[in-house]
Every structure is written in C-alpha cells, then in structure tokens.
Design a protein around this nucleic acid. Structure first.
Lengths: 193, 193
DNA sequence: GTCTATACCACGATAGAC
DNA sequence: GTCTATCGTGGTATAGAC
C-alpha cells in the first residue's frame, strides 16, 4: 500500500523486508528472516535481487522517489510558499500515520551505514525540494531575508521532530491533531513581519 | 577529550570504538577492527568489557550522563526559560563542533537496534530536561500556552536539524555562526506576544 | 521462476599461557 | 592485565535440480 510496486513476488519480498527492517533493523534482519516471513525461498529472493543490500536500495529509491513526486505535485498545486510548505507538513503527517514503516525507513535508518555511496537523506530530492520552496518564499518577500538553510530548518525542523517523536511512540495522539499548532509556530518563526 | 574517563587502556578502547562506530557504524565495526585500530589485544578488550554491546552501552551511558549534567548546570545557572533554552542550544552547537563523534553517536545511532531495552533517545534524561525547561516557561507566562510537546519541538527542532545537517557535512561553516539567527527564529515561534 | 542443499567466511567470544 | 590461538555460530551467497 505504501510501496509503488504492483502485486508480485518481488513486491511481497520488498514489503516483508520493509517490515522487518523497521521493527528489527537492517543488520538484525537476515535474508533467511525475510525468507521465512514472506514464505518464499532463498533462491527466489536472490533471483529478484542481487543481495540484501539491493533490497534495501530498491526500497530506498522507491520510497524517496514517490515522496519527491508528492512534493512536486504539492509545489504545482499551490501558489505561495506559505501554502506549499503547509501542505508539505500536512502530507508528511498523514504519510506518517498511513505508512509509519515507510516513514521510519526513510527518516530513521542510517542509510550510509548500509548503502555505501548514498548521500545523506537531508541532501535527497524531497529535502532539496523543501529547501527550494523556502528559498522561493524569501525571494517573493513572504519569508524574512535570512540564510536559506536556517529558514528551512526553522520552518520544518519542529514538524520533523514531531514525526520522530510519533515514530518513537512518544506522542499519544495522531500527528494531524497537532498540525494547526505546529504549523502556526513554524510559520511564525520565519514569516516576514 | 569528549569522554568522561581518565587515561587508561579502557578509555583508549572506548575512544577507538566511538570513532569506528561513528564513521563506519556499529554493525559494520567488528571487535577485531577495534583491536587493530586501538593496537590492543582481543583479550584485553574482553577483559574490560563483557562484549561489543557492553562497549556501546558504556559509551552511551557516559555521553548521555555528561550531557544531562551539562543541562542541569545550565538550568541552575539561568533564571528564565528564555535564557536556559538559549544556553542549551549554544551548548549543543559548541558540543557538536568540539565533539562531533560524540554528538553523532548520541543523536544519529538507532540505539534500540543494538542496545536492547534502551528507551528512545527522545525520552532520555537530557531531552526530558529540555522539555521541563519549556514547561516551566509556559507556567511563568514567558511561552505561549500550548501543548508542551509542540512548544518543545518548535523551540529545539530547528536547532537539532541544524546539528544533523552539520554532522552530515551539509553545512559549511561552524554551527555557532548560526546561533543568533536560529535562536531568534526558535524563540519567535513560541514566545508569548 | 522457484526450490533445497550447501559452501564459505567473518564474527563474537573463550581458553589458557605469561 | 595482557597476550595469541582457536572455536562455534550464523550470516550471505551460490549451485544446480525441477
């Protein structure tokens, strides 16, 4: 449901791997664990993927890709930095509730630890798009003139921390309940007066 | 220098382990790697620590402990929520520059993946103290009346994201250069009007 | 494409001399 | 307290039948 792929053996393997990677961690999950949980054979797994790392890479690329696509649709659907950024936070909150495992895999895993050569998540496409939205907002005068990095971290940092808290089980209710309050704080921190 | 321990074989092992855990990751670091890098014997390592996990635990407890102590000193040294929280951010920024590996180990590692039974980092003592400072600020009227979690994430979320960026090499200059700007955004987001 | 069986190796941990 | 040598387990990945 959270993965872009169609029904197939391959997608079953991916779904199972995502589940195990998030609840037990990448390194604590063996290929045999995936085999058992998905009820397929080792040979089948190695037929579809070069190895364990390739499974993680396919998951990562797929999830980051759909996330970037969502960001682009948001950017196209709204006209101001305020509306765009608010829609991004709303989207991230909903995504966290709907697909906590996907969110956890993207945000919480240290990909550089098991995906050699991968750039840090904060340099990935979705995060770059968020930075661009903020930079555009500074251009138009909606957002105070300041270092773009600082503006972006101030605007999205609180929301991202809320997501971490939620994934860690440190937040009781669903995230969208806090959308209004978090967004007002976030926007207040950078809005031009 | 960042670890509380005195000079000894034991502290040498801890320092080396911290270094390797942060640059290569916990699971990608074998006890033999630590042995080679520290130029000690396997036997010596297993004499001082029960195993690899015990090394990680000693590191974690030591670093979180000194961090919590610093927070308590900050709380005692300042009278208002504003001054306390600002001092916390300044301290975290300086600590990141002085001991990036320690900071990375505390913030970036998924301890629950290799320290069974450990609660999430956001529930650890230093983070609890930060939440308490914010809650006190709401009591005194310095900070808007709002859900304490939201206030805490809004106030510290931006700074924490800046630290992640810095640790990932996505921020060129040293963090303290951005202290003033980040703090003004953070405080503006929650200050009572 | 899917399966079983197995090769191979690296790792954490221990034994025991000094 | 420190060392060297070694063991046993469990991991990834492959071979080859169906």
């Amino acid at each position: 449901m959270c993965l872009p792929e169609k029904d197939s053996r391959r997608s079953l393997i991916l779904e199972t791997a995502l589940h195990l990677f998030t609840v037990r961690g990448y390194f604590s999950t063996s290929v045999h664990d995936i085999r058992r949980e998905a009820d397929v054979s080792i040979g089948s797994i190695y037929h579809h993927f070069k190895g364990k790392e390739a499974i993680a890479r396919a998951l990562y690329d797929g999830l980051v890709g759909t996330m970037a696509q969502a960001m682009e649709e948001i950017a196209a659907a709204h006209g101001s930095a305020h509306d765009r950024c608010r829609a991004v936070v709303a989207h991230l909150y909903e995504l966290t509730e709907r697909c906590p495992e996907a969110m956890q895999f993207i945000l919480y895993a240290r990909h550089r630890e098991f995906l050699p050569g991968e750039k840090p998540i904060c340099s990935s496409r979705p995060f770059e798009l968020m930075k661009e939205m903020v930079a555009a907002g500074i251009e138009t005068g909606e957002i105070r003139v300041m270092a773009p990095v600082v503006a972006a971290t101030s605007l999205f940092g609180g929301a991202i921390r809320m997501i971490y808290l939620r994934l860690d089980g440190a937040l009781p209710g669903p995230l969208p309940d806090h959308l209004e309050e978090t967004w007002q704080c976030a926007w207040r921190s950078v809005a031009a007066e």
